[in-house]
Simulated assay, not measured.
Amino acid sequence: MSTMIKMVRSFAAVAAFAIATPALAAGEGPHIDRQEWSFAGPFGQYDRGQLQRGFKIYREVCSSCHGLRLVAFRNLAEEGGPSFSEDQAKQIASEYTVIDGPNDDGEMYERPAILADKFPSPFPNEQAARAANGGAYPPDFSLLAKARAAHRGFPWFVFDAFTQYQENGPDYIYSLLTGYEEDPQGIEVPPGQYYNHSFISGNFLAMAPPLFDELVEYTDGTPMTVDQYARDVSAFMMWAAEPHLEERKKIGFRVMVFLIVFAGLLYFTKRKIWRNVEH
């Protein structure tokens, strides 16, 4: 009898947690709307034009503070990425300077980057980055789209497993870039801080609004708006964090087809072997 009571109590506790968790999650973090991405879903692919525009945003707006230290220049020309030509990637690399060495005299020296090099960080170390940004540390962009996201909590992450929703990272980055508000009513913004209703760690952050309409020139006719800029750089950051997404999805589809065929073969084999055996 006592065992049955314990089981009932345990079930009640789990049920209470399941009911309370969504409310807690909703109260603790900002609401992040889901966006439409070309790379969403089991057959999603990156939009090459969007990746190139996103890289342009990164290079002209973000690279002065945020690094991309895990991405090599050759990745820009690899399959599944922005699809720059090799010559274009070489030209982009030549515009950066990296530290190499030591030379014959045992000294480090600077040289133009080549395809094998990775994007150099804008600051020599974290202390220098904080000193240049009022104590705030600008995060590296390499894995940010996978590392930063608004947690959806239970039971939503269970549904996400079935719907294959994996874009909460770029959704959050887009929402953050478009979530700045000037002088929100009834809220006092600390000096040197900016109000953003989508920021996970409170609503104040040290980064000023980085995007403005017509800030970066597009030559393909794409609207030059904050909304479009935010979408493009968010997609680029997703590629930086997961450059083999398309290949992963192709392999996953092949595996699923194989498992379905294999299961069918096992079923018919079982029926053939055991059809004349009495049970």
Rank of each mutant, 00 (worst) to 15 (best):
I200Q: 03
P102Y: 05
T97I: 14
S175D: 08
F123S: 00
R69G: 06
S64L: 05
T163D: 13
I187W: 07
M207W: 01
V158H: 07
N103C: 03
V71H: 01
F119T: 02
L211N: 02
W37T: 12
F268H: 06
L177K: 02
R271Y: 03
F55P: 00
Y195L: 06
W239I: 08
G49K: 08
Q185F: 08
A235W: 01
V226Y: 02
S201Q: 10
A150D: 13
G67I: 03
K270D: 13
Y218T: 08
A20S: 07
P122C: 03
P191K: 09
K90T: 14
A241W: 13
I200D: 04
T97F: 03
K146V: 10
D47N: 15
G153F: 12
R48C: 00
P191Q: 13
I92N: 02
L143Y: 02
Y165F: 13
A240M: 12
L245E: 03
S121Q: 05
P30T: 11
F119I: 12
I32S: 04
A132K: 02
L266Q: 11
E181I: 14
D160Y: 04
C62G: 03
R69T: 14
I173E: 02
L266M: 13
G81C: 09
R130S: 08
S85Q: 12
D183W: 01
F39L: 05
A72H: 11
I99M: 05
H151T: 11
Q88Y: 11
F119C: 00
A25D: 11
T178F: 01
G44T: 11
R74L: 07
S175G: 05
A132Y: 00
I5K: 14
D227H: 09
F204N: 01
E217Q: 10
A230W: 02
A128I: 10
K118V: 04
N133Q: 06
D117S: 06
A206D: 03
V233N: 03
I260V: 15
Q50W: 04
D100T: 10
R74C: 05
E246V: 11
K6D: 09
L176H: 05
A240Q: 06
L115S: 07
H279I: 14
E86M: 12
P139E: 10
D47L: 06
C65P: 07
Q127T: 10
Y96I: 08
E278F: 09
V61P: 00
F253L: 15
Q228W: 01
F154E: 13
W274L: 15
F73R: 09
G169E: 04
A20R: 04
Q193W: 10
G192H: 00
G80R: 04
Y195P: 02
Q50E: 15
P223D: 09
G29R: 15
Q164F: 07
P191L: 11
A129I: 03
A23V: 15
V277K: 15
P210S: 07
E28M: 12
M224R: 14
A263T: 13
A131E: 15
K249Q: 14
A18P: 04
S10D: 05
R275Q: 14
A23G: 13
I57C: 00
R53L: 06
A25V: 12
R48E: 14
V216I: 13
E182I: 05
Y137S: 00
F73N: 07
L211A: 04
